[in-house]
Design a protein around this nucleic acid. Sequence first.
DNA 1: CACCGTAGTTATCAACTGATAACCTGTCAA
DNA 2: TTGACAGGTTATCAGTTGATAACTACGGTG
Lengths: 190, 190
Amino acid sequence: MTRTRLTAEERHEQLVAAAVTAFARGGYAGTTTDQVARLAGVSQPYVIRLFGTKQALFLAAAEHATGRVEQRFRRAAAEQADLESLGIAYDDLLAERDLLTMLLHAFAAGADPALGPTVRACFGRIYRTVRELTGADEDEARGFLASGMLLTVLGVLQIIGPDAVAREPWMTELIGVHNEKKDWLGPAPE
Amino acid sequence: MTRTRLTAEERHEQLVAAAVTAFARGGYAGTTTDQVARLAGVSQPYVIRLFGTKQALFLAAAEHATGRVEQRFRRAAAEQADLESLGIAYDDLLAERDLLTMLLHAFAAGADPALGPTVRACFGRIYRTVRELTGADEDEARGFLASGMLLTVLGVLQIIGPDAVAREPWMTELIGVHNEKKDWLGPAPE
DNA sequence: CACCGTAGTTATCAACTGATAACCTGTCAA
DNA sequence: TTGACAGGTTATCAGTTGATAACTACGGTG
């Protein structure tokens, strides 16, 4: 039962994916490199060897999460190149709570001078992608990002999404009845 | 030079305020109770005694930050009870980056089952406050919160605000030229 | 003035965690 | 066969850090 040997590149990618999941809970400081390592089935020192520092691993995870969002948007735009299409695509992303939570943790951690530049670049990439794919003007793109941020927070807080908690009155109000059929809302209350 | 003795309640409040500042950088796991203690000029074990656990301190800080936002909104609504007035008030809050960063960290940490309920309650309080103060309907309030979340992230990432970093082209675009005179944008580029 | 409750401290610790160093091992070319 | 490189491990550690325990001191009050 020898563990499958992967190329450094393959292991790298696998670890970044594991890092997104791990950092989603716990955030930057609250996640150990050992947790990421176990999730990928390798030893903790090997993670450090591949990425140098925990910080580099976190930034790689943030960029990976950003890339996933971008990728999903491009796929949506290939079918229909407008904001509505990207909005529907984002509904899919809401189902992957790890991704959104990782992003939100990255944004919060962006206050740290060491992480700020990279995190800002991630945010900028998303903005540019939205504009380039849809041709939306500044105001439209800003509105899209604003809605996206709200949905992201609501998703992270499990107010919307597949694994949403029991819905309280104010949550139903905030979500809005006209959205009740959208699948990103999670199971509707009986 | 005997340190000023405060009542437990006074010290409590002072520590919560210090916690907001401390947790703003570092987040939940990345901030030590000792950092909070030093910020308030007391010993670390005393912080634990007053709050029981680090987690309780964090939640108290999150609720305090929420309360500050609420308070600011109420003051604005006392003069003019509509969304525009609250929006202007929020511009003021953007200058207090610690507050926003604390909130964003709290939202991100809300994915943790132990913190989720309290964080959701904080978010709910803000939503309810906005609606009650302005009489805005669901859609208007949702739009307001969405804009608020975007501004919060932009503030935390120092893309807007008094201590904003050097502005890159996409940032100027995203912020929008029509906002150039607003003081929450920080110093305009020459 | 002696007492006592409240505000605070110092001493201490067990557990954790990122990082380093040294070692192991499969595979493939010559 | 052999060597050598890439992929990976075990051993180890120094620095933290939340929390507990035991002790100290101020200030009002009978």
